[in-house]
Design a protein around this nucleic acid. Structure first.
Lengths: 115, 115
DNA sequence: CTGTATCCTACAAGATACTG
DNA sequence: CAGTATCTTGTAGGATACAG
């Protein structure tokens, strides 16, 4: 039997973040740092479909990264925010970003060495 | 047009690590900290097929995480090691692991609150 | 405004057999 | 020993239409 997904914390974190739109959504919620409406997210993410946006939001919610609040007013309104646990991912996300940039730079350097 | 994969370092790091066997392979190479043969990896990973093992190794190599050395002896031998850049991923992988464990604990606590 | 419901395609991943 | 080559399947992701 292969490893269970939940058996390794690293693998489960990666799978939490592995959707096509997870990081863009996370980034927007992080930077804005306030409740953000569904329509605002949709406006901000140029080419996502409503179906995908809803799917990715539901997954992030299920995984405890974001919180969804619905206000059933005459004009329905739904707002999303990062949970504090979700927000705290920034620690390793920042380090991943740094590592990624250095790593790309190294690979560029190697290519130029060859040329 | 959606975001290019390379445009965001975080997304490219996630995609580097997103194969089914990437983390198990990484972990084994990291812990052993010496050149590891193809057959040893295959023996260690209970249910991976040779096709998948080769595929995942090729991707990790392409992405600069591991190095492949082939010794075309009478009994062919191929050894894999982490590159120094690959090895340095441990910094954020450790933090992801910590975050994942706390996050799971939080979610368990919440469930018990409800019950 | 905030979604569902369907249908479709591409690609990751697995099973199995074969090879230098 | 260290792989390829083929075939099949499951699922993520996208297009489009409809709905409370």
């Amino acid at each position: 039997m292969p490893v269970q997904p939940s058996e390794c914390p690293v693998e489960s974190v990666i799978s939490i973040l592995s959707g096509r739109w997870k990081i863009p959504i996370y980034r927007y919620l992080f930077i804005n740092n306030k409740p953000v409406r569904y329509s605002e997210l949709h406006r901000h993410l140029p080419s996502i479909s409503k179906k995908m946006l809803t799917e990715q939001l539901r997954e992030l919610e299920r995984d405890g990264i974001i919180e969804r609040k619905s206000y059933p007013e005459p004009r329905p309104r739904v707002e999303y925010t990062l949970t504090s646990s979700g927000r705290s991912m920034i620690v390793f996300l920042d380090q991943m970003s740094d590592w990624g940039q250095h790593h790309n730079q190294n690979k560029r350097d190697e290519r130029e060495d060859i040329i």
